[in-house]
């Protein structure tokens, strides 16, 4: 996508007037559609469509050995795949830079034990733990990837069910695990602390959230703020521009406020989602 100067000025004036090109105000999000449990053989999954941005997240679980330096903790790994369906630029290894950037920022945001408790994933101290793979597939990019990915990841983790371990027997170096055969015997993850990322984009003198692809092109810089339980978990500045410290603080406040609202709305939605008999997925 390329914008000419006149188009950029139009977007900028809209932001100044608090009436953006799609009619939103500065702190409004575009409509979102969320669907959970749509990948049938994953332990948990979610698909989020934020206007034109489409993200599919699936969670897979494997048994692994804990890191020697953290024997009481399980593992959590993020993998982002930029599908060429989103844009031909992602063909081959073209999307790898973006993928690494997003997965690293997610890993950073989930690192703190207060955000996500990895000790619950430990099966036997120093010997066995669950390893959670969070696989993110970007299917369409319409701006504001970070927010969409973080919400979809949170929803997928909410949907995730970890098999219940009934007993662990240790016989020398052999460890036998007995996993409950009952299909519904499983534990859910606690995701209330899972961070929500909010991209605060500076356009002209004003800050906006949820920039569309056109608005992203007009911005001088953006802050990706991840908020978990009222606290910032990571802050990442992206883009080529520079921000004044005063603006930075304003951005942080905006981001914090919006993230709170987003978190409440998401939890409310997730509680409301009923397990449907036939998932619609992409056929809708």
């Amino acid at each position: 996508m390329a914008l000419c100067e006149a188009e950029k000025t139009f977007v900028l004036h809209g932001v100044e007037e608090n009436f953006r090109i799609d009619g939103r105000e500065r702190e409004d999000y575009r409509p979102m559609e969320l669907e959970t449990n749509i990948v049938s053989h994953a332990f948990g999954s979610a698909r989020l469509r934020l206007a034109n941005t489409d993200v599919l997240v699936a969670v897979k679980i494997e048994v692994d050995v804990p890191y020697p330096e953290r024997p009481r903790e399980g593992k959590l790994e993020f993998f982002v795949d930029c599908s060429a369906n989103a844009t031909p630029d992602f063909e081959g290894r073209g999307g790898e830079d973006l993928a690494v950037e997003i997965s690293n920022s997610l890993a950073g945001a989930y690192r703190s034990p207060e955000v996500f408790d990895l000790t619950k994933l430990c099966i036997l101290k120093g010997r066995k733990c669950w390893k959670i793979f969070v696989d993110i597939l970007l299917l369409e990019c319409g701006g504001n990837l970070y927010d969409a990915v973080s919400i979809a990841v949170k929803a997928a983790l909410w949907d995730t069910r970890i098999p219940l371990v009934k007993s662990v027997t240790v016989d020398g170096n052999n460890i036998d695990m007995e996993v409950s055969e009952e299909l519904h015997d499983c534990q859910k993850l606690d995701v209330t602390g899972a961070p929500i990322m909010v991209t605060v984009c500076k356009i002209g003198e004003q800050c906006i959230v949820d920039p569309s692809a056109a608005e992203e092109l007009c911005s001088v810089g953006a802050l990706v703020i991840s908020v978990s339980r009222n606290k910032f978990s990571t802050i990442l500045q992206t883009g080529s521009g520079s921000l004044h410290p005063q603006t930075l603080l304003e951005c942080l406040q905006t981001g914090h406020k919006v993230a709170q609202r987003l978190h409440d709305a998401l939890i409310e939605t997730l509680v409301d989602i009923k397990p449907s008999e036939n998932s619609v997925g992409f056929l809708r």
Binding site: V39, A42, S45, K60, D81, S83, D135
Partner: peptide
């Protein structure tokens, strides 16, 4: 053409 399989 590019064929790709989601890791999951």
């Amino acid at each position: 053409c590019q064929f790709s399989m989601a890791v999951f």
